[in-house]
Write a protein that binds this DNA or RNA. Structure first.
Length: 897
DNA sequence: TAATGGTAGGGGAGGAAAGTAGGCTCATAT
DNA sequence: TACTGATATGAGCCTACATTCCTCCCCTAC
């Protein structure tokens, strides 16, 4: 019998000898589990000269049960150009789980020179050898298997496996989970003690007509159709297990499901003596493992997706701009839907409250599961990972969980093996330390950032960049671990930085080959995208295109990554050195005849000032430059015009704003671009981002600083009059490590300490973002950071002075200084405005009693310079005006304690 | 069984350290 | 001649301040 299915998961079980299991779904939506026998784990041993037999007898003697067989093979060593293969031993064992033991023991033996591929996960060893990939279709031959262990529609005992070419995707079933827990004590719920009270499930497609199901352990009168009530948590969990089995989801998802819901459920299942085999196999319970701060869960045959982690990753990679990661914030931003408002601390209160409150809690739980599912589906968050799986060969779960290194390694393993190369084992901790030291000592220089010409440029600026610079360098100079020359070779390619790689005529490097292929694949995908007829087709092609781009760009970072199997610092350094040469050389070429000036450039891009203000002409000049530069680089790497800036304000390296015109199908499109400036940074409050954006827009589009001034004046006066909503004043920052590890004093950390004291259960953790506002007071600014909600509730006063002097003015000063308006002019305007306006607006001047009761600081009567500490002289050191006490808007010579 | 791509760079806040001005004390002179 | 009080001056030391430099941290550009 022949069966084709899309490969969803793969693992192995040990029935005396290993059996590989392939999980997937066929065209009819039936789940499949295919069992493959007679595949054994192996690795390669390079013995010392002539010691082959010693290795074999050692294995025979010490690992009688485990050792299966050894074969003599000829392989290329992976690092450094090799003309000839080397004889080594391919050692087969009987049990994958024991491979590390044998490997480590062998390593200690004198007759061993090196060991290769002794740490490739068994499932990936199998998949690589059979040339099958996660999320691709495979065809298996074989009869139905007699087993009740796996819970799939079809079970097959496999004789042969092969990949098939099919680009479609099977329809998947999704189930979102959200649990609610009451904690007996204050703080984080403890699965040992605290019971689950509600399990909220959301399905796509519907489960027996229900889009949602709510399991709960308290009876309420007005019962919705989707509510199931149980007498005990034990019974509720039992039903939960059976729902999973009957619905049989492919994807199980949740918000922070890895960190909270799943581990918690597992613990409660254990305590209530329910089954923990939630996967498509009775034998394997769901495993939950902690790696440092991360928790990973695996469910045989299914995929666990944590939407919270996906969101964070997207933000981290700059694909998404969000200030906070809460489900509420994210839903509002991405799908314009709100969460029902209940804090963790209030859950117990609602649960133990009246009917109305319990009902609200139920609605809240239902909404959460719905939102998570909606986010994943409507934003098609998994598409990219499906494509990454197909490209790299990884299983979908590992594409989602793992980093770039695993992807690159999986791809390289296959390509290396195809060409008879072995790849090294992962470095041990000592080797990692050595690499780190080496990097420390030698340094690993990165890209070149050209010194910018700071200021406002109003001539047309042409913006050009290199197409996939680092990947192109790999290809252009045949850079690869397998081609790097340590010895003399007649035919070689020399990079501008002086490194030598063997000529591609003798050996085309493996990485260059892969990268070249990926780059041309991407070009084709982009072309197909342009002619796509349906939105679905376009979106699917786009996901592919993005995945290809990711893979292409991963190789450079990988070679400089200390934990990589194929870490070659020389290669990483060579790549960046070539990049530096290219950008510098390009600048020289552009400036050759004094018509153009390169005013800035970063890594792979340059901005060229022309002598025109006409956009069409600028584009023509851009085309001219493009041709000239590409000719200078002899087709090895090409530059492309990205657009023309009508006006551009450069503040510093990596910080600029411009009014850009792009060409899209011969249509001109205008847009504002801002890089690195506070408008795009998440650690400034919205007031700053918004007003700075407006100011920049006025300056760039209208070139009218006066108008910008007036705008600021209004903002400042609003701020002084407390007319700015507190939401606009919230500054958010990430927590990057545990409290103990922080050395200095920082606002968000100080606030975190306070929050932990107030409500340990609700306090944010590592990886979360904390939002704060600065309130009035005399302590360090960091100690005056406060939770906005707390400020509202306790009616604390916002420190408007902080927002003016430390938030609004500094970024504005930098902008105005760059356009030639002095800092003091603006500061003067800012501060005087602030005080004089306030006075004009009717703040009473004390007449009879000229003393004030509290002080906020010390201020110069003439120029309004403020001092943090009391100056001992009574004169302002700037203008020699008199120093006075002030409180709010009131100044006085006298201060009564 | 089991994790984690890279360097360059700006900028805020706090803290240490070296530098400095002014105050205090004491000696001395008038 | 011895002693007192008021006043001035300068040296030496101490303290608090303003400043500079550095570290830590966050986040971004590419």
């Amino acid at each position: 019998m022949e069966t084709a299915f899309q490969l969803f998961d793969c693992d192995y079980i040990n029935n005396n000898s290993p059996v590989v299991r392939l999980f997937g779904k066929d065209k009819n939506g039936k789940t499949v589990c295919a069992f493959v026998k007679d595949f054994f784990p192996y690795f390669f041993v390079l013995p010392e000269e002539g010691k082959d037999e010693e290795v074999i007898s050692f294995l025979e003697k010490n690992y009688k049960q485990l050792f299966f067989k050894a074969e003599h093979v000829e392989k290329y060593l992976p690092i450094g150009y090799r003309k000839e293969k080397v004889r080594m031993l391919k050692v087969f064992l009987k049990d994958p789980s024991q491979t590390p033991v044998v490997r480590d023991e062998l390593r200690r033996q004198k007759f061993i020179k090196d060991i290769f591929e002794a740490d490739i996960l068994f499932k990936y060893r199998f998949m690589a050898d059979k040339n099958i990939s996660g999320m691709k279709w495979i065809k298996v031959h074989g009869p139905a298997a007699q087993t009740s262990v796996s819970k799939t529609d079809r079970k097959i005992s496999v004789d042969s496996v092969e990949p098939i070419d099919d680009d479609t995707n099977a329809d998947l079933k999704y189930m979102a989970i959200d649990i609610e827990v009451v904690s007996l004590k204050e703080g984080v719920p403890d699965p040992q003690k605290d019971p689950i009270i509600i399990i909220s499930l959301s399905f796509f497609p519907a489960h027996e007509g229900n889009n949602t199901l709510l399991l709960m352990t308290k009876s309420i009168k007005k019962v919705d159709r989707d509510i199931l009530i149980f007498k005990s948590e034990t019974e509720m969990l039992k039903e939960f297990v059976s729902i999973i089995e009957s619905y049989d989801p492919d994807v199980v998802l949740g918000y922070n499901i890895n960190g909270f819901d799943l581990p918690f459920i597992l613990e409660r299942l254990k305590i209530t003596k329910n089954s923990r085999a939630l996967g498509r196999c009775d034998q394997k319970i769901v495993t939950s493992r902690k790696f440092g701060m991360k928790t990973r869960n695996s469910m045989a045959g299914r995929v666990v997706v944590d939407v919270y982690e996906l969101i964070k990753e997207s933000v981290g990679k700059g694909l998404l701009r969000l200030k906070r990661y809460g489900l509420g914030d994210v839903s509002r931003e991405l799908i314009d839907e709100d969460k029902i408002d209940i804090t963790h601390g209030e859950i117990s209160k609602h649960w133990n409250g009246n009917e109305e409150q319990v009902k609200k809690l139920v609605d809240y739980a239902r909404k959460d599961a719905e939102l998570v599912l909606k986010l994943l589906l409507s934003k098609r968050m998994m598409d990219k990972f499906v494509e990454i799986s197909k490209l790299s060969g990884l299983l979908l779960q590992d594409s989602l969980d793992g980093g770039e290194a695993v992807r690159v390694e999986n791809l390289l393993l296959r390509e290396f093996n195809k060409q008879d190369y072995v790849i090294p084992c992962k470095p041990e901790s000592r080797e990692i330390a050595r690499r780190e030291d080496e990097q420390q000592a030698r340094g690993f220089k990165g890209a070149l950032v050209l010194e910018p010409i700071v200021g406002l440029h109003t001539n047309a600026i042409v913006y050009l960049d290199f197409r996939s610079m680092y990947p192109s360098i790999f290809v252009a100079y045949n850079i690869c671990p397998t081609t790097i020359l340590f010895e003399d070779e007649k035919e070689f390619v020399k990079t501008p930085s002086g490194s030598r790689f063997v000529s591609p005529k003798l050996k085309e490097g493996i990485i260059p080959k892969i990268v070249h292929q990926l780059m041309s694949d991407r070009d084709k995908l982009k072309k197909r995208m342009k002619s796509a007829t349906t939105e679905d087709e376009r979106r699917s092609l786009n996901a592919k295109q993005i995945a290809v781009k990711y893979m292409t760009n991963s190789f450079y970072g990988y070679t400089g990554y200390v934990r990589a199997r194929l870490y070659v610092l020389d290669i990483a350094s060579t790549i960046t050195a070539c990049g530096r040469y290219l950008i510098q050389h390009t600048k020289n070429v552009v400036e050759e005849d004094n018509k153009f000036k390169v005013i800035y450039g970063d890594t792979d891009s340059i901005m060229v000032r022309t002598q025109t203000t006409d956009i069409d002409e600028a584009f023509k000049l851009g085309d001219f430059l493009e041709k000239k530069i590409n000719a200078a680089h002899e087709g090895k790497i090409s530059m492309k015009i990205e657009g023309v800036f009508k006006s551009l304000l450069i503040l510093t390296k990596k910080r600029y704003a411009g009014f850009m015109v792009e060409k899209d199908n011969e249509q001109l499109k205008e847009k504002m671009t801002m890089k690195g400036i506070e408008t795009v940074r998440r650690d400034w409050c919205d007031l700053v981002s918004k007003s700075l954006y407006t100011v920049l827009e006025i300056i760039l589009k209208e070139q009218n600083p006066k108008k910008a001034f007036i705008y600021i004046k209004e903002t400042l006066s609003k701020l002084e009059k407390n007319e700015i909503p507190i939401e606009d004043l919230v500054v958010t920052k990430s927590i990057s490590k545990s409290l103990k590890e922080y050395k200095g004093v920082q606002p968000h950390i100080e606030l975190l300490k306070k929050l932990k004291k107030r409500n340990p259960g609700d306090a944010p953790g590592i990886g979360d973002r904390v939002g704060y506002v600065i309130v009035k007071g005399l302590q360090l600014m960091s100690e005056r950071a406060e939770d906005p909600e707390y400020v509202k509730q306790n009616k604390l006063k916002i420190d408007s002075r902080y927002y003016i002097e430390n938030q609004l003015l500094p970024p504005l000063e930098r902008v105005f200084e760059a356009i030639g308006i002095s800092k003091s002019e603006l500061v003067g305007v800012g501060k005087q405005l602030l005080l004089f306006d306030a006075i004009k607006n009717g703040v009473k001047k004390p007449k009879e009693d000229q003393s004030i009761k509290t002080i906020d600081g010390f201020i110069c009567d003439r120029c309004n310079k403020s001092f943090r500490r009391v100056p001992l002289i009574g004169r302002c050191d700037k203008c020699s005006g008199e120093i006075m006490f002030y409180s709010g808007e009131t100044k006085s010579r006298y201060f009564v304690l």
